[in-house]
């Protein structure tokens, strides 16, 4: 119980530290959001100007933009740890590795959720999709999707932050793993926007929950090894 409380305070300290740095430096969110906006705009050019076609493609575009932006965001959050050897020091503290993973993932989740919600709003405006009508289901999808990207991203950014070719390797390793999350989130969003005519929304949300739980457990179990591989 005591150990659990200590882990929780360590995780919160790590997340809080990332949040403070983010609020002051804005390394991850502003540029990443801008990037997501550009991606949406380019999708519009690539598929438009037929409004119906854009509205039909909106769920897919939304989540592609979120996932692409997510790669940048988690990468930025880990680059923070390269401030003067911080990652090495983080590994040297006598704390459980799961707590460090949880802290980094919570920080990543907060950033990802912000990105997902803002991109959702942008999609509503740009592609004339009624996002307000189905907001509870869309918010649930955004939360689960953001958690999944954060869980996987924290983990892969932890590996690639020490690689020479990290800009290439992070998306290359992360995107195939995120494929089921992309499927689930796109389908859930499409179902929610259409008013769930086939009653499949619940199943897709369950898939996202399963993905999140499995990836969080796997990430927490292995993060320590990558933190220690120096």
């Amino acid at each position: 119980m005591n150990a659990l409380r200590r882990d929780a305070s360590v995780a919160l300290a790590v997340a809080r530290k990332d949040a403070i740095a983010e609020l002051r430096g804005r390394h991850a969110t502003v540029s990443t959001l801008f990037f997501a906006g550009i991606v949406l705009l380019l999708f519009g050019f690539a598929l438009g100007p037929d409004a119906d076609r854009l509205a039909a493609a909106a769920p897919g575009l939304l989540w592609l933009a979120v996932v692409f932006a997510g790669i940048l965001a988690v990468s930025r959050l880990h680059l923070l740890e390269t401030d003067d050897g911080a990652l090495e020091h983080l590994a040297l503290y006598p704390v459980s590795r799961q707590a460090i993973y949880a802290g980094k993932a919570i920080g990543g989740f907060a950033v990802m959720l912000l990105i997902a919600v803002l991109v959702l709003v942008a999609v509503g405006i740009l592609f004339a999709v009624d996002v307000l009508g189905a907001w509870p289901a869309l918010l649930a999808t955004a939360v689960l999707g953001a958690a999944g990207v954060a869980a996987v991203g924290t983990f892969y950014a932890g590996i690639t932050v020490r690689l020479r070719a990290r800009e290439v390797m992070l998306p290359l390793l992360m995107l195939p793993v995120l494929a089921p999350l992309l499927l689930g989130a796109v389908k859930a969003t499409a179902a929610a926007l259409a008013g769930d005519p086939f009653g499949e929304l619940g199943a897709w949300l369950q898939l996202l929950v399963a993905f999140d739980v499995i990836m969080i457990v796997a990430g927490a179990a292995t993060y320590g090894y990558l933190l220690e591989d120096g």
């Binding site: 996987v152 983990f155 590996i159 390793l173 195939p176 793993v177 089921p180 499995i214 990836m215 796997a218 990430g219 292995t222 090894y225 990558l226």
Partner: peptide
């Protein structure tokens, strides 16, 4: 090993 484990659970 880590990437192999994550890929397998995926």
């Amino acid at each position: 090993a880590i990437v192999g484990v994550i890929a397998a659970v995926d």
